[in-house]
Amino acid sequence: MSLFSWLRPASPVVSAALQQRLAKLSVITGPSECSLREQRWVVLDLETTGLNINKDRVLSIGAVAIEDGAIDFSQQFERTLQCRELKLSPSVLIHGLGPNAIAAGSDPAEALVEFMEFVGDSPLLAFHAPFDQHMLGRALKEHLGHKLQHVFLDVADIAPLLCPQANIREAGLDEWIEWFRLEVFERHNASADALATAELALILFSRARAQQIHSPLNLQQRLGQWKRRQQAPSF
């Protein structure tokens, strides 16, 4: 045994049934060259115990699919993850997740496998995607020993890329909802925020096509170019 092996986190104990389901998950490749409309997308939002990406935990997952250029309300996902030993922070209370709901939630490993089955090989969209990507990846590693490999695109970057005239690059989801005059009747829970993000994404895909961005691969490339320009020093 290595002198430092005790420092490594213990591998999670995963049941044989969950291991079989993990083995059947789709093989993930890079962004597709199909049209934005033909691509199935999964729009994700996570509610967490806080914003510390190394210590806080995922409490709930909300997601909806965009398929054939529209939100498919028959393809929605919502789970609260069980967490028996948790001190509630103000952010948890904002999300409306009380101790009873969290204690009665789904087994995290089971819920995470179900979510990855729901996602399939679809790319993921989220608002401030790096946070959701990191938190989801950490949860998958901790509960299942599974590595997240899906493509994530950040709607918080796509919006200012395609709508520079808004001049609200650092805006949150609420500011973009207001700018596009979307009617959103509920916020601050995972499913509602995923749905609001999906509505925003559909508007942005229309803008993308008007700007000659026709595929997920095109969109990722343009985002990369835009980010490099934003980070370049000005003289």
Rank of each mutant, 00 (worst) to 15 (best):
Asp174Trp: 02
Ala232Tyr: 10
Leu3Ala: 11
Ala126Phe: 02
Leu59Asp: 08
Glu47Phe: 04
Val64Ile: 10
Ala194Lys: 00
Ala109Gln: 02
Arg229Met: 11
Gly224Glu: 05
Glu78Gln: 10
Thr48Ala: 13
Ile28Phe: 02
Pro99Met: 11
Val92Ala: 06
Phe205Leu: 15
Asp45Tyr: 06
Arg37Cys: 15
Arg228Lys: 13
Glu142His: 02
Gly172Met: 10
Asn54Gly: 12
Asp132Pro: 06
Ala196Gly: 10
Gly120Ala: 03
Leu97Val: 05
Arg79Phe: 03
Ser32Lys: 03
Ala109Thr: 03
Leu86His: 03
Thr49Leu: 03
Val155Ala: 13
Leu18Ser: 01
Leu148Phe: 08
Lys24Ser: 07
Ala70Leu: 10
Ile102His: 04
Pro160His: 04
Leu173His: 01
Gln149Val: 13
Phe205Asp: 11
Gly98Val: 02
Gly69Ala: 10
Asn189Ala: 07
Leu173Phe: 07
Arg222Gly: 09
His134Tyr: 09
Pro108Ala: 07
Ala171Asn: 13
Ala232Ser: 14
Gln165Lys: 14
Arg181His: 12
Lys227Arg: 11
Glu183Trp: 13
Leu93Phe: 03
Glu78Asn: 12
Leu202Val: 12
Ala101Asn: 09
Asp132Gln: 08
Glu114Gly: 06
Leu153Met: 11
Ile102Asn: 05
Glu78Ala: 14
Leu204Ser: 06
Gln231His: 07
Pro31Leu: 04
Glu85His: 13
Gly137Val: 09
Glu110Trp: 07
Gln212Gly: 06
Phe77Pro: 09
Phe4Asp: 00
Ile177Glu: 05
Pro99Ala: 15
Ala111Lys: 00
Val14Thr: 05
Leu124Ala: 05
Ala159Lys: 01
Ile102Pro: 00
Arg169Leu: 04
Ser215Asn: 06
Leu182Trp: 05
Leu3Gln: 08
Asp45Leu: 10
Phe127Lys: 00
Gln39Gly: 15
Glu38Leu: 15
Val42Thr: 15
Met116Asp: 02
Leu88Ile: 08
His95Thr: 14
Gln76Ala: 09
Ala70Lys: 03
Lys141His: 13
Leu202Arg: 02
Val119Ile: 11
Asp121Gln: 12
Leu161Met: 11
Ser2Ala: 09
Val64Tyr: 00
Gln19Glu: 08
Arg187Ile: 06
Ile66Ser: 00
Gln149Glu: 14
Arg21Cys: 06
Phe127Met: 12
Phe180Arg: 07
Leu148Pro: 00
Leu161Trp: 00
Ala23Tyr: 13
Trp226Gln: 11
Thr48Glu: 05
Ala171Phe: 06
Pro31Lys: 09
Pro123His: 04
Asp157Cys: 14
Leu59Lys: 04
Val43Thr: 08
Phe235Asp: 07
Phe118Asn: 03
Arg181Asp: 14
Pro130Tyr: 02
Trp179Asp: 05
Pro31Trp: 06
Glu33Ile: 13
